[in-house]
Design a protein around this nucleic acid. Sequence first.
DNA 1: GTGAAAGCGCTAACAT
DNA 2: ATGTTAGCGCTTTCAC
Lengths: 342, 342
Amino acid sequence: MNVTILDIAKAAGVSKSTVSLVINESDKVKLETRHKVWQTINKLGYVPNMAARALTTSQTKTFGLIFLTSDETSLPYVLDSVPETLLYDVTYGINACLKNTDYSLLTERFSVSGQAKLPDLIKNKRVDGVFLIGGLYDDAFINLVLEQGIHVVIIGRRHEGVDSVSVNANKVGYLGAKYLLELGHRQIAFISGPAYSSISQEKQNGFAAAVAEKGVNMEQIYFIHSPYTGMGGYQALKQLWNEGVRPTAIFGGSDGITAGMIRFLYEQEISVPKDVSIISYEESVLSTHAPFSLTVIDGHKMQLGEMACMTMINRIKKQNAQEVTLIIEPSMIIRGSVKVMG
Amino acid sequence: MNVTILDIAKAAGVSKSTVSLVINESDKVKLETRHKVWQTINKLGYVPNMAARALTTSQTKTFGLIFLTSDETSLPYVLDSVPETLLYDVTYGINACLKNTDYSLLTERFSVSGQAKLPDLIKNKRVDGVFLIGGLYDDAFINLVLEQGIHVVIIGRRHEGVDSVSVNANKVGYLGAKYLLELGHRQIAFISGPAYSSISQEKQNGFAAAVAEKGVNMEQIYFIHSPYTGMGGYQALKQLWNEGVRPTAIFGGSDGITAGMIRFLYEQEISVPKDVSIISYEESVLSTHAPFSLTVIDGHKMQLGEMACMTMINRIKKQNAQEVTLIIEPSMIIRGSVKVMG
DNA sequence: GTGAAAGCGCTAACAT
DNA sequence: ATGTTAGCGCTTTCAC
């Protein structure tokens, strides 16, 4: 079998518990013995058995990323479904933060509409804490998770009484509107997201605030709702066009929405930014790979993941510290899809 | 604390081992006692402790997805880096397959050029098996992993002596070329991928085979190498254009490459498919969200993940069965980016 | 500062 | 068909 703590103890001429103390960096052990033990650990290539450690400490040293979806069978990337760019980037950020830590990350897609009450990761106690992402959860669900003695960090929105990390959505709308207004745009369409989404609403509020601040008439500002999908952006813009509206700038509330908008414009041979200006929100793989250099508001989704991870680690360290609510400020990445209006 | 196997045993009036047998679906237990035990399990809400189970069986019931990269610090999605769409889709497929299984999936990004010899997941024995993806591994690395007593399934390429699941790359080139030739294209550029990539080479071979089969002159067929990045596709096409070459159709060897190609064409105001036809390979979030309905060869990357997962599970069941080499056949998704030539 | 010993929850070989 | 028992590898009091 493998090298165990007992082998080290024998080889180093000390007891099991001393080795354990050394491994766990206790300062109670004499420097000399500490050296001796580390040497034999390295010599014999000892690696702690996580399962055994988990059994005694009842800590798995594992976190779970629970992706809440309404429908678990939908393909993640056809034009008519929400692209999972948020999940990709947040996962990347969490993993980056977990690197050089003794924690690992498990991922589970969980359908809230399904029959299971709790994700398997939680039910089986495979994790010490979970990141909840995807928006589709309510107090009842969160409390159920908390009852299992599992820590929770919510990603993407604020939630009373629980640690959370999110993006300042109001600022997203504000920044986009401010930028467009400053470049002289006065006819602007903002396809922000679905009507039921509070995030989408906040973005509109921020947009409206910038418009008011600038003293611009709201008459030619079009707030439009659509799903966070390519098809959503496509159809919303198409309808607007069919109604005869001709904005000089269009603001997509997500990279998915913007991709759909771009498809409509391409179809109509409307050139960006010559004929119309475009700005997007998110900065995912979709905006960086757009057919032109796309000006975008960066939601810093990787950083979102990293900060969620830091929050989780702090929570583990200080179990009953005050709840943490982190808000990440979006920022503009000015590229080439917005024209200066005369 | 939590309810354990012993609590169940007491409550049901049997012994620990009987409960254990029932849980592990042994048919040695009388039907009556089995019922009784399951009833109390449900009543008391017992859930097995994975750590304890892992300790005795030395099976973690966890797999690892190891993503081999050369450089761990690069952002995953700027135009000048390889978009990680393969990782996204394969992960989705593996998770889908693992659902309703008692296995979970851990992910780790591992830099082969780093100082660490082995990914942490493997070193810490957190996994029973690993999926290797990303292409950057050699025999030495694989053998090192195998020596740890960990199962290996390679995703994306074949490898002597190890289970592997990959896409028929030759067929990718073949299908694309055949389709374009049949629609009358005779000037075709194929930006297949980097020169050092055997996959890229295989695609070219398949392409050449279709051309030969059709009896078409190779003179106006352009095989071009570029990195699997948006920037790669962009610059490769730009150079071709600057050399005065004007193909009627361009075939991108990955969705990332194609995204770059599309950006160049957009810049030059060359319209697709009116002025030039485009076909891509992969079918990731990038091709479905292209600015036009993009004809693409589907690499079935989710299925790749699912089959890798099935392969792993079979390997666990029959440790020393013959090695498995699964090849997935790509297929065409005909949409609207290829014109019929007169 | 270090060792001895108990126990975490479970499985599996052996008894009965 | 079911019970008894001995670990799996580690942490953690509690003595010394």
